[in-house]
Design a protein around this nucleic acid. Structure first.
Length: 261
DNA sequence: ATGGCCAATTTTATTGGA
C-alpha cells in the first residue's frame, strides 16, 4: 500500500508530452500535479493520460501559466484560482479532491526583479497561499504542491551569499514562504532530507544542470495528518537530463495511505 | 560586467521565465 503524489513544472505540456508520458509510464504516480502547462483547457492532451488510466483536470491559458492534475483515483475539481480571486486572470491554482485527499496544484508568480511591481504581487500571492493552507488543513488531509518560485533555505541555492536579495531568494519571499509552513504545512522534502544541498530547477543556460547550479523551487507541502503518513520525498533528477527537458525536475512523495502500488 | 537557453506568439523579434 502506498500513495505516490508528484509535482512537476513541465514548461509547456504540449512541448513536453513525450517526456511526461515516459516518466509516468516508468514511475506510475497515483497523482501528478503539473504547472506551466501553457495551454487552454480545450487543448489539454486528455487522451494520452486517459489511455494510461489517468483522469485529468486543467486550469490553463495560452502562452503562460496553467496548472493541471492527473490522477488514477478519481478527480473532482473543487475550485480554480485563489479563494480571494487575487490575480484571477492568471491560471495558477487548481484545488481538487482525489484519492481521499485534497490537493492544490500551485504556480506562484516568478515576480521578476524585486524592484518591480510584479514582485509585490508575488509576495501577496504567497500570503494568500498561507490563508488557503490554514483553511484547508483544518478540513482534512491537504497537500499543496507546485512551483513556489522560492528557495526557502540556504541549502536550496548554490551560493546563498551571492543569491541574497535576488529573485526567488529574497528575504521577503522566504519569509512569506515561512508563513505557509507556519499555517500548518510541512515541507516534505526537508522532512526526509533535513540537510544537504538540493535543487529542483536548473537554468537552461550556462550548462547549469551539468554543473549542478540551481535552486529548490518546487515543493510538496502537507498538512500534519498527511505528513504523518509520509514515508519518503525526493527529487527525481533523471528527466532533467533527458533530451528536450523541462528546466524543472519532478518532486515525488509517497504516503502510507491506500493506493495501488 | 554581460549573456549564454527555451517556449509561445501578435514569429524572422519579443516576452517571460528564474
Amino acid at each position: 500500500m502506498g500513495l505516490t503524489v508528484a509535482t512537476w513544472n513541465v514548461n509547456s505540456i504540449r512541448a513536453r508530452m513525450e517526456q511526461v508520458l515516459s516518466w509516468i509510464d516508468s514511475r506510475r504516480p497515483d497523482v501528478l500535479l503539473m504547472q506551466e502547462t501553457k495551454v487552454v483547457d480545450s487543448l489539454f492532451p486528455v487522451e494520452p493520460f486517459r489511455e494510461r488510466g489517468y483522469d485529468t483536470a486543467s486550469s490553463g491559458q495560452k502562452t503562460l501559466n496553467g496548472v493541471a492534475v492527473a490522477s488514477r483515483h478519481g478527480l473532482e475539481v473543487i475550485r480554480t484560482g485563489l479563494a480571494s480571486r487575487f490575480l484571477d486572470d492568471q491560471k495558477r491554482v487548481l484545488l481538487a479532491r482525489t484519492a481521499g485527499i485534497t490537493v492544490m496544484s500551485v504556480y506562484v508568480p516568478n515576480g521578476g526583479d524585486p524592484s518591480l511591481a510584479r514582485f509585490a504581487d508575488k509576495l501577496a500571492f504567497l500570503g494568500e497561499l498561507a490563508l488557503e493552507a490554514s483553511e484547508e488543513a483544518r478540513r482534512g488531509p491537504f497537500l499543496m504542491a507546485g512551483d513556489f518560485n522560492v528557495a526557502p533555505g540556504d541549502e536550496d541555492v548554490d551560493d546563498p551569499v551571492a543569491m541574497d536579495g535576488h529573485i526567488c531568494f529574497h528575504p521577503e519571499e522566504r519569509a512569506r514562504f515561512g508563513g505557509i509552513l507556519d499555517a500548518g504545512l510541512t515541507d516534505l522534502f526537508r522532512m526526509f532530507n533535513p540537510a544537504g544541498r538540493a535543487f529542483s530547477w536548473w537554468d537552461y543556460r550556462e550548462g547549469s544542470f551539468r554543473r549542478n547550479i540551481g535552486m529548490r523551487l518546487d515543493h510538496v507541502l502537507a498538512s500534519q495528518d498527511l505528513a504523518g503518513a509520509a514515508v519518503s520525498c525526493g527529487i527525481d533528477r533523471e528527466p532533467r537530463g533527458w533530451e528536450k527537458p523541462s528546466d524543472h525536475a519532478p518532486v515525488v512523495a509517497v504516503f502510507d495511505l491506500p493506493g495501488t502500488e
